[in-house]
């Protein structure tokens, strides 16, 4: 893939110069903090909001599992939205503006052009997810109890893989549809639709939402369904790889 190193460097520099990377990292850091605080102080927040009426709602004592679940849910929702926004214009905007034509009249292969973008997307989401996880781990240690770092790292990787699935589907749409807005629409449909499909057990175990349960358990150091984890991981990886491959198959014949 001629030009991959140069183009990856260019993409990462673009993420920094256009402030995408710092902004997403800050957002995810906020999610990390918010998640643990919400889990720990939900009862107090409800008391403040509802006053005496809060007593009528039975709220169980917060546990470390709540913190992990809250983190997963927040990153799952806001992170998916961020992944879609990051990926929606990756190819469509470059083609629209003519910068893709500028690059691809140089000795840079179309495969490298796409691969660099996927690598940069992965790097931005990876750094942001790691930041959120690190902040959340520290807050969890202060507000609940320290959890095994190794399990927390595995959970972080699984969350990141899940986000990459949404990013890669949007990336494929950005390549095929020539419109960033349409690509975002496809990404949102995927985010909303795949969890619904997960309700079908035979299908759901292969989809990204299937990563949530094992990730939660491994973060807490609890036992988990290894077979379920492997099938969800394989399915999600296939979505990422398949979307990227399909994007390349389309893009290599596209006129610019």
């Amino acid at each position: 893939m001629s030009g991959l190193g140069t183009l990856t460097r260019k993409e990462l520099m673009e993420s920094l110069r256009t402030r995408r990377l710092p902004v997403v990292v800050v957002l995810f850091a906020g999610l990390g903090i918010l998640s643990v605080l919400t889990a720990r102080y939900l009862s107090e927040i409800l008391e403040l909001a509802l006053g005496d009426q809060a007593g009528a709602i039975p709220i169980p004592d917060p546990t470390v599992a709540d913190a992990v679940t809250e983190l997963q849910q927040n990153i799952g929702q806001f992170g998916a939205l961020t992944a879609i926004v990051l990926a929606m214009g990756t190819v469509a905007w470059e083609r629209e503006r003519g910068t893709a034509a500028f690059i691809l009249t140089k000795p840079a292969s179309r495969a490298a052009f796409l691969a660099a973008k996927i690598v940069a997307l992965g790097a931005v989401l990876g750094i942001a997810t790691a930041t959120a996880a690190a902040v959340a781990w520290a807050y969890t240690a202060v507000l609940f109890e320290p959890l095994p770092p190794a399990g927390w790292v595995v959970m972080t990787v699984l969350v990141w893989v899940g986000l990459m699935a949404w990013a890669s589907v949007t990336f494929l749409a950005s390549t095929v549809l020539r419109s960033a807005a349409a690509a975002a629409g496809v990404g949102i449909v995927a985010v909303l639709g795949l969890p619904l499909a997960s309700a079908i057990p035979t299908v759901g175990r292969w989809l990204p939402p299937g990563l949530d349960g094992p990730a939660n358990a491994v973060a807490r150091g609890a036992t988990f369904d290894a077979a379920g984890l492997l099938s969800a991981l394989a399915g999600t990886t296939a979505i990422i790889g398949g979307s990227t491959l399909a994007a390349w198959l389309v893009f290599r014949r596209q006129e610019l």
């Binding site: 256009t18 402030r19 997403v24 961020t82 926004v85 990051l86 929606m88 214009g89 905007w93 910068t99």
Partner: peptide, 12 residues
């Protein structure tokens, strides 16, 4: 976030 990721138009 949406402004920084999708609203600014200075990449080209």
């Amino acid at each position: 976030i949406v402004y920084f990721l999708a609203g600014r138009e200075d990449e080209a």
